[in-house]
């Protein structure tokens, strides 16, 4: 089987915790969806409730540039 491709990976390194569940966020599987396109990524995720965290640098950096590229398709 071909190796799974992730467009972006962030490891929370135990510095983030879910307020609701009281547990540390872990590196988990997530997906960005925009205009009928999907991108598998690995982001900090709560192992209990599934909260996916998108850091500010990612939102205003890579995510924004991909949004703009897709918008002009």
């Amino acid at each position: 089987m071909a190796a799974e491709r992730n467009y972006y990976t962030i490891d929370p390194e135990g510095k983030l915790q879910c307020v609701k569940c009281g547990v540390k966020l872990i590196k988990g599987k997530a997906k960005f969806m925009y205009l009928d396109n999907g991108f598998p990524v690995e982001l900090p995720v709560c192992p209990v409730c599934g909260f996916v965290y998108v850091p500010e640098e990612l939102a205003l950096g890579k995510v924004l540039s991909v949004e703009k590229a897709l918008e002009d398709k």
Partner: peptide, 13 residues
């Protein structure tokens, strides 16, 4: 601080 993005992010299994 506050920020936003248009892409929707979901968990995947």
């Amino acid at each position: 601080r506050a920020y936003s993005h248009r892409m929707n992010v979901v968990r995947r299994d």
